[in-house]
Design a protein around this nucleic acid. Structure first.
Lengths: 179, 179
DNA sequence: GACAAAAAACCGTCCAGACGGTATACTAAA
DNA sequence: TTTAGTATACCGTCTGGACGGTTTTTTGTC
């Protein structure tokens, strides 16, 4: 119980360091310090650095997956429900949740294999989106657009002004309701 | 003249290692070996590792910028020319040029500040796209969609099948020609 | 064109520091 | 007294980069 909280604190600390100072600054010591813990204490919860990165990715992905599934299932309109849920949830993650960003970057830096769970989830979503009672090409463009928005936030590549961002989201949702 | 070739070879080597083995494997020694050079020789051309990463980013961005500018200027239709050029060139980069990917990932890992030139270029393009005689929201969505496509290639997040990818490109270009 | 001198390109070794991880000791609660 | 959790000390390895040297290319002069 303390264990679970500490684990969470450690992952938060790691994500924050990655976000602020870059991946190379995320050392066991720096994470431990940020989480107000000793290196030994950290290693008790994550026996290796790879375990830490894996923990980051897996934990964030679990939430991400559950939310998208729930969004699709609770949508009263069948047509485009997966596309819509994907748009909503990815938009939300991209603007508020920096931990998934950190996990993504850490994973590709430390070991591309750690991306596997994310890649599998995406494969599944892409399939749902292509079979969403919409034109597959247009639906895919909607998916790519939110991904692009997320991308722009991660790397700071002309992230959209708040107002434009809201308009883009609104338009994407509208388009997800079909022709 | 040998200098220029060697520099290019070194950057190629660095990009290849990043792409194959990840950022952490890109050490001065591994790059030197891949470029068929000694560590001393490498450090002659790039006095520090940061210089190497900066070189990667700057060189690739220069090409990227020139191509987008040229594409817009050579477009006979005024409406949507920047959006179209951005789509074309980013699509091209995302499918064939892995060096910009490598530069992007290396930069964010080693020092987020190294992303500045890319960020400035994007800011400029975004502005052109918003003033491209198209609906700004729709034009922005097109931009984001190609970025999303690039994103999907970098991280392997459900990269599109070849055929779908072509259809998406075609549709984006069509949409860039206005309502 | 010959050739010395200077500059450019390149090599291999060495080292201080940082890092991941182990071993072990401590502490508080049950 | 056991055990989960934390702390401290320590070790072996790797890495960036400094450095002194060597080879190759260019340049200036006759």
């Amino acid at each position: 119980m303390a264990s679970s909280n500490t684990k969470q604190a450690i992952m938060n600390a790691a994500a924050q360091i990655i976000h602020q100072d870059g991946i190379l600054e995320m050392t066991l010591e720096s994470v431990a310090k940020q989480a107000d813990l000793s290196k030994g204490g950290l290693l008790y919860h994550f026996p290796s650095k790879e375990d830490l990165v894996k923990g980051l990715v897996d934990h964030q992905m679990q939430v991400y997956m559950e939310n998208i599934k729930a969004g699709a299932e609770n949508d009263t309109t069948n047509k485009g429900k997966w596309t819509r849920s994907f748009i909503q949830e990815t938009f939300r993650q991209s603007t508020s949740n920096k931990e998934l960003d950190a996990g993504l970057l850490a994973a590709i830096a430390y070991d591309p294999n750690l991306l596997n769970p994310i890649q599998e989830a995406y494969q599944h979503w892409q399939q749902q989106i292509e079979e969403d009672e919409l034109d597959p090409v247009k639906a895919t463009i909607l998916r790519l657009a939110v991904d692009g928005l997320w991308f722009s936030e991660i790397f700071g590549l002309a992230p959209l002004a708040k107002e434009l961002k809201e308009e883009v989201l609104h338009e994407l949702i509208t388009l997800s309701k079909g022709e």
